[in-house]
Design a binder for these strands. Sequence first.
DNA 1: GAGTGGTCTAGACCACGAG
DNA 2: TCGTGGTCTAGACCACTCA
Lengths: 242, 242
Amino acid sequence: MAPRRDVIADDLRTQISTGRIKTGERLPSEAQLASHYAVSTPTLRSALAVLQGEGLVEKIHGKGNFVRHPLRRITYVGGGRTPLSQTATDPALRMTIRTAHIPARGHLAALLRVSKSSPLTEFLCLSHEGNSPHSLARIYVPRDLAPADGPSESPCREAILVRLTELRPPLAEVREQVSARCPTPEEAATLRISSALPVLAITRVAADTTGRVVEAALLVLPGDRADALFTHHTMTEEGEPE
Amino acid sequence: MAPRRDVIADDLRTQISTGRIKTGERLPSEAQLASHYAVSTPTLRSALAVLQGEGLVEKIHGKGNFVRHPLRRITYVGGGRTPLSQTATDPALRMTIRTAHIPARGHLAALLRVSKSSPLTEFLCLSHEGNSPHSLARIYVPRDLAPADGPSESPCREAILVRLTELRPPLAEVREQVSARCPTPEEAATLRISSALPVLAITRVAADTTGRVVEAALLVLPGDRADALFTHHTMTEEGEPE
DNA sequence: GAGTGGTCTAGACCACGAG
DNA sequence: TCGTGGTCTAGACCACTCA
């Protein structure tokens, strides 16, 4: 005999996938659902927790439980040609970028192989589809390689990143370390995902032909709406993939 | 004011990390802990759930809650040179392999680009450190490329995989699709992880110079004990990394 | 202030593991 | 059989959102 929690979760999942509860719509209140299924509130809440873990439902305190928009799955393409490869593939994504000038702190200094408190430029990129945040990227470059831009708030979309790519010297090596983990509370808040939803965390370090690190990027992609793809060509004379 | 759940989780986490509760040891029973912290059992259980989500504690029904051994983090190295790159780096890992002959079903047939029910050999690899499973790999190759081995149960460790690597033609392209997700119930059971712990799921497809797919692998790496590393070299004449 | 989710309680009963 | 965790109840009280 299956736990009531799972029975209820299954039922709601079916109602969502068959469209009986429409996407973006609010579910009945937890109290209503609990009495409808004749269970107590904790039981009902644990059923909802299952759906949250699957990324199907989003709870908003004081407002209710909402069916999440099934977002287009994006694919991050490894190899470091562009700062956020997915923007190239999917023009429907909007992107907001915040620029800041900061000194290299402990972890970053090590990644970029620069001395502590040496000047960096940080690009905080958040891509959206509609109102739903889609991915988060923090890109750090030594300040002398960054576009000398105006103050810290620039609305000019991807132009910055394009310029960033043009400015930097040809890359010799791109290392991407990938891990699966739960988001930090801040990441969960910015991406508006449950803190139980796995994210793909990618740390990308790109070095030029002299061995100098020209970029370090910390990427966070919600597991339910993003993959990463790495293609490795052997025996090919510099065969440009894509 | 922080939730009691988090206060308790913090306290237990401290006790674990300072060694006051030793690794591998059993925690006091939930009832004892609940009365010690003066909370109800559901509250205490939700505190333990936090620690399970962090991979610090493992519950075993009917036995108790145990502090997990902090396993060596392994690194999967992309590029597809060896079937499970981490074995090369870490000789302390044991590995059990089960071989089976199966027909290509829907998903696999597509991955390997073979017709349905064409013969495949499946290698089911489970790597261990001590008693703790470390990673799970299901490797599929067309049967004519597989080592013609004996019956379905062969204990001869990595020899099979080595032979597998030697047998296959030189690779031209390796595509690795990486995603972060929660494990399926079966995966959670074999890897003995909580079903809330994120895993890194890697689908690797390797093709030879003629474009024939010679291997498809489904890798599952628990997020708390494995990363993946992809290195991309540009402008280098076939510079063999590693 | 009305309605929503967030947390917590004190106890019940069931299912699993080991002796 | 006994001790363990697994599930569930019927409420209580607090915190957030919005009119």
